[in-house]
């Protein structure tokens, strides 16, 4: 059985954007273990999108492309925009969307992309949190890590595309440059992994790092003092109006801080079998 370790994350640095030293990117030095605080339980990573602060600049979209070398023709995150109303009472607003790193419904405890994966549930694995406690989880080509991240193991992927169809948000695509590990005649599935390679090294995701308005706030919901926890609590965000497609029962962990109620107006859902809604375009 494979064992992996939960990141020794210096939460403060991640949550505050470090205001400096730790926020230096893809190949930044990891926070030394000695500095990390032992956490009592595994983190539960989440993101809050403050729609009051998104100015539609697309720095996140491009930062993600650069960080993850995302090929042309597909995205791991996009900003949707919409203009509505009649001149001169016209409005325009922006909605950053990405993988919601859903918790899944009560029954499955994993989101539909994971249940759809023929390689799930696979091998049993253990995840070690900073306190030394081990958490067991089931691996798969698409799986949920105990810190809540929905990840893809491209080595196990068979390129069947079932997860692409199963995701109600349509945030998955095939990577034209990576073959499915278990079936080299197909391409592997790909999507936002919350920059796990950065997060695991104590650095916030690339999109968060460059967001001008701090419209993207990343952190640990299991830490009641984290900014995401406080925002979720203060604005009551864990409710149907502040997540996308609540009715799908996916239990998303990207929350929208949206006092003006624009999320539902701007959101363009996927059309069945298509991903056109997930191509970032400025009109």
């Amino acid at each position: 059985m494979t064992e992996t370790k939960a990141p020794m994350v210096n939460r403060r640095d991640v949550l505050t954007g470090a205001g400096g030293a730790a926020a230096v990117g893809a190949v930044a030095v990891a926070v030394p273990a000695s500095e990390a605080k032992a956490a009592a339980k595994a983190p539960r990573w989440a993101m809050v999108m403050d729609l009051r602060a998104c100015i539609g600049c697309r720095a996140c979209t491009v930062a993600c492309k650069a960080e993850n070398d995302v090929s042309l023709g597909r995205f791991r995150t996009v900003v949707q925009e919409k203009t509505w109303g009649t001149f001169p009472e016209t409005k325009k607003r922006f909605l950053p969307i990405m993988c919601n790193h859903c918790a899944g419904n009560e029954k499955d405890k994993v989101p539909p992309c994971v249940t759809a994966c023929p390689e799930y549930p696979g091998e049993r694995r253990k995840w070690t949190i900073p306190s030394g406690e081990k958490i067991r989880y089931r691996h798969g080509a698409t799986y949920k890590r105990p810190d809540g991240l929905i990840l893809i193991d491209k080595e196990l992927c068979i390129g069947c595309g079932k997860c692409l169809d199963a995701c109600p948000y349509g945030v998955r695509s095939f990577d034209p440059f990576v073959k499915a590990g278990k079936d080299p005649t197909e391409q592997a599935a790909d999507k936002c992994d919350m920059c796990a390679h950065r997060v695991d090294n104590g650095v916030e995701p690339a999109c968060v790092n460059t967001c001008q308005g701090r419209a993207r706030i990343f952190g640990d919901l299991n830490d009641p003092e984290s900014e995401v926890s406080m925002l979720v609590k203060e604005h009551n965000l864990a409710t149907p109006d502040y997540v996308l497609l609540h009715e799908e029962g996916t239990n998303p962990h990207v929350f929208y801080l949206d006092p003006d109620g624009v999320m539902k107006t701007v959101y363009k859902q996927r059309e069945k079998g298509k991903l056109d809604h997930y191509v970032d375009q400025i009109p």
């Binding site: 926020a23 600049c57 720095a59 491009v62 460059t210």
Partner: peptide
């Protein structure tokens, strides 16, 4: 303050 726009991110 450590921010960069879309253009700057595309400098590569």
């Amino acid at each position: 303050l450590g921010k960069l726009c879309a253009r700057g991110q595309a400098g590569v």
